[in-house]
Nucleic acid binder design. Sequence first.
DNA 1: AATGAATGAGGCTTCATTCAT
DNA 2: TATGAATGAAGCCTCATTCAT
Lengths: 218, 218, 218, 218
Amino acid sequence: MTGKEKTELRKTQILQAAAKVFAEKGFQEGTIPDVAKESGVSEASIYEYFSNKENLLFSIPMEAMQRLSEKIDFHLKLIRGSAEKLRAILYLQLLFYIENRDYAAVIMLILKQNRRFLDTEAHQAIRKHLKTVDKVIRDGMECGEFRNDMDPYLIRSTCLGSMEHVVTNWLMLGHPTDEELLKWVDPMLNALVRGVGAGNELNQCPLKHLIVPEDVEA
Amino acid sequence: MTGKEKTELRKTQILQAAAKVFAEKGFQEGTIPDVAKESGVSEASIYEYFSNKENLLFSIPMEAMQRLSEKIDFHLKLIRGSAEKLRAILYLQLLFYIENRDYAAVIMLILKQNRRFLDTEAHQAIRKHLKTVDKVIRDGMECGEFRNDMDPYLIRSTCLGSMEHVVTNWLMLGHPTDEELLKWVDPMLNALVRGVGAGNELNQCPLKHLIVPEDVEA
Amino acid sequence: MTGKEKTELRKTQILQAAAKVFAEKGFQEGTIPDVAKESGVSEASIYEYFSNKENLLFSIPMEAMQRLSEKIDFHLKLIRGSAEKLRAILYLQLLFYIENRDYAAVIMLILKQNRRFLDTEAHQAIRKHLKTVDKVIRDGMECGEFRNDMDPYLIRSTCLGSMEHVVTNWLMLGHPTDEELLKWVDPMLNALVRGVGAGNELNQCPLKHLIVPEDVEA
Amino acid sequence: MTGKEKTELRKTQILQAAAKVFAEKGFQEGTIPDVAKESGVSEASIYEYFSNKENLLFSIPMEAMQRLSEKIDFHLKLIRGSAEKLRAILYLQLLFYIENRDYAAVIMLILKQNRRFLDTEAHQAIRKHLKTVDKVIRDGMECGEFRNDMDPYLIRSTCLGSMEHVVTNWLMLGHPTDEELLKWVDPMLNALVRGVGAGNELNQCPLKHLIVPEDVEA
DNA sequence: AATGAATGAGGCTTCATTCAT
DNA sequence: TATGAATGAAGCCTCATTCAT
């Protein structure tokens, strides 16, 4: 028991260090020696836990995405209305980025442009997340909360893209500040939902009280 | 003269090759030997034109951005209405990406996450472009075409972010196709402008015929 | 006792695994982790039995050579005639190689070219074996069965070299097959003994019934 | 011209150094830094000429085998009689080993036990050499100079094996001396040819004056 | 102006080996 | 006795970059 826990701890230690190093320097410029120094572990030990440098990189988002995913699933069950759900998802995601700056940087600035990452187990977790978003959007379109004359993929892209753009700038330029960033979620989401919404004011989904939470999980 | 022209040609040759190589392999995995092979120029010669590898990378978007910028400026002069202008900018930008896939990849997938690129002359061109967008947005807010209860930076982010997200996916996943991508511009812009718009239907800027083209350049 | 036996068993286990690994991959390319996996023993445990990797390698032939040596000694006592004895030695040796392919590979392909192996206890066993061969040859020369105008070392070299060459090819190329290899012993030995023989046909050693078995051991 | 020559010189320089290093330390224990030091060339430069360490190793015998092969071909044309030819081949080969101790060590102690070497261009040169030997042996069997009740492969193995064994001992033990080694060629060959010979004394090939040199080349 | 040739620098990775349990 | 875990040491190899021609 204690052995396995220790191992798990060590792994997390290394992953955190790696996230920090790669977030600061980028993947290629961040070296294994850097990660070793940062984590207080020998270089060789890193290879006990991760088969190679790229595998280390790809392992960074796994845990974190897991946690985020669970949190989102949990909250979605408590919320009625697709617009509200969409807002919740984006809000939680943004919050997560703010609270885990290094992970955010690794995901947004490094992994997003790595083609090999697409074939990764970690990327599957991301795809699952995207599916959740899709479900919410499609539900919203069906029940009339969202415009149904738009490709749902486009709706998703607009929402996520806006957020990612802001996050990327926040990471790269340090602007806006964390507080501003959080304050912006609402107006941004409002604008998005408005652009994406059906035009009649919110809460108009006649069936929304019937949507059982399990739907979201599908 | 002929000497200078030849030099300029060679430079372009190298830049194109570099764009292709970096677009395919990424910056670190694309090597100077690769660029040399692709361009048919010796490695050593590359250093005659570019002081080092990063400088080569940073030089890639210059020309192209220049051309795009000029084209946008030209078109903006012919268009009235902030919404229309915004649409034009985004459309031209998207068109540019589609027609210059390698440049798009270098800009969107590589340069965007390079902090040192921020201090670059090439990045200034980008900032100038952003200012143009800002100007259009602010004008639109002033004359009531756009909501004025939103941070203009947020409006810009929403517009650019949506587009960049779609472009990134197009580059990384090959999805959507070029044609789809182009077809999507309009609905996407509509949604954006609607979300960002003042609510009363378009074309309502009473002063838009007064906006003199030169304003935009400022 | 049981403890000691267990220890001995474990050692043999490891040695066999090591022989297999080194035979397949060579000494440097075969790793301690490989041996650990193959033997079902932990890496650390290997070091309980063998002080280091080279010592493990050098220990491989000991047991086996011991067994071979005993078998040869036993048979030699039953045979009269130097030519017959020589034939027996070579035959038994060849048989041993065929029946212990991994050991053969380790000895012929790895240890033979290791200078440090020369200083080993295991190598002493080999030298003792060579002395047995020498004794037989010298006896054969004395009693007129073998040519006495040739350096005995040369005779030995010719016999052993021929055999080793064939064995090496068998190990490296898988050619000839085990059966062919065994069938070849006789003609090869005939040729050798003929080349090495005194010319008058065999069995002509007038004193051979006087050779007492103990001589051979010396 | 001068450029190519210089390149070729450099390559030879490196190969000689590599032969020396590997002969002394073995392949794995001899390092690229060692070769660099020995050859007075930088490590990186070695990789300009040889794609990797193993390729460097495999390239060592090429030149040398080439030279030996040519010399043998040349001499064979001048010699009548299969036995004499066989003797010549073995003698020249032995001489070559003595005059190129490092190459001999690399070939006999390192390459001979490397399975990947078998797929090498350099190994083809060796196979060609073996074919020459085979041809001589088969010719000798046909015209009655050699026993025809033995597998020719076995005859070849006996001859080469004897020689290689002696050479290996010479390399490993420094015994016999170069002079002794040379002096032994004749008696050894006599014994071999005698063992392998048809029994009637030499020179009995009735057609041997008809054998045209070209035969050998086939 | 153009390049073939050479190399310094440094990263990733692998193991043999140790040690605490 | 047995081993999981940790690491020091070191080698291969790759490139960006320089320089003589």
